[in-house]
Simulated scan of single mutants.
Amino acid sequence: MSRGIAYRRAKMATIKQQRRHWWQHDMSPQQIGLAAATPKPCSCWMCGHARRHHGRTMQERRQLDSFEIQKDDGP
């Protein structure tokens, strides 16, 4: 069963209601919409994408190492 536009609008209204004080101050409707769509206020090393700041994850490094070993063992 697919959910319709009414469901998505209701969910967005709930999220906006919850995030009215997300960044510890009263916000304008535009800021509330921004907090609902993108909950992180910045892209610093604490809030941003971990791969950008810390490199590849351990799982990705293991996979690449495994691929390199298989590539070297080939015919």
Rank of each mutant, 00 (worst) to 15 (best):
55 G>Y: 04
61 R>V: 11
42 C>W: 01
66 S>W: 07
37 A>K: 05
9 R>E: 15
34 L>G: 00
23 W>D: 02
22 W>R: 02
2 S>G: 07
72 D>C: 09
70 Q>P: 00
6 A>T: 12
19 R>H: 02
46 M>F: 07
40 K>Y: 05
61 R>A: 03
47 C>T: 06
63 Q>K: 02
29 P>N: 09
21 H>Q: 05
56 R>W: 09
55 G>T: 02
10 A>P: 00
53 H>Y: 15
6 A>S: 13
49 H>M: 04
9 R>G: 15
12 M>F: 07
11 K>D: 10
32 I>R: 04
8 R>Q: 09
14 T>P: 00
18 Q>I: 09
53 H>W: 15
13 A>W: 08
1 M>L: 14
39 P>D: 00
56 R>N: 01
13 A>K: 04
26 D>W: 08
48 G>T: 03
26 D>F: 03
75 P>V: 05
60 E>Q: 10
52 R>D: 01
58 M>Y: 07
67 F>V: 13
64 L>A: 11
30 Q>E: 09
20 R>V: 14
46 M>H: 08
52 R>W: 01
68 E>Q: 13
52 R>K: 09
50 A>Q: 08
63 Q>N: 09
64 L>S: 10
23 W>S: 02
7 Y>W: 14
42 C>I: 00
71 K>V: 03
24 Q>A: 13
72 D>P: 02
52 R>A: 03
64 L>V: 07
66 S>P: 01
12 M>D: 08
11 K>N: 12
49 H>D: 15
50 A>E: 07
48 G>K: 00
69 I>E: 12
73 D>C: 10
26 D>S: 06
7 Y>L: 04
62 R>C: 10
66 S>E: 14
68 E>M: 12
10 A>S: 14
7 Y>S: 11
57 T>E: 02
18 Q>M: 14
10 A>C: 07
10 A>I: 12
55 G>L: 08
19 R>I: 10
66 S>F: 13
14 T>I: 13
62 R>S: 07
73 D>W: 03
26 D>E: 07
34 L>A: 01
7 Y>H: 15
74 G>L: 11
68 E>F: 15
18 Q>P: 00
20 R>F: 06
36 A>R: 02
27 M>E: 00
49 H>P: 04
63 Q>R: 09
41 P>R: 02
49 H>Y: 09
38 T>G: 03
73 D>I: 06
71 K>M: 12
26 D>V: 06
75 P>H: 07
38 T>Q: 08
5 I>S: 11
29 P>H: 01
12 M>E: 11
64 L>W: 04
73 D>H: 06
9 R>S: 14
72 D>R: 12
30 Q>N: 08
18 Q>D: 10
59 Q>M: 11
72 D>S: 11
60 E>I: 04
27 M>C: 10
35 A>E: 01
4 G>D: 14
21 H>W: 14
9 R>C: 13
4 G>M: 01
17 Q>P: 05
2 S>F: 13
19 R>D: 07
56 R>Y: 05
4 G>F: 10
2 S>R: 06
15 I>T: 14
75 P>F: 10
31 Q>E: 15
68 E>H: 13
43 S>T: 11
61 R>W: 04
14 T>G: 13
45 W>H: 08
38 T>N: 12
10 A>G: 15
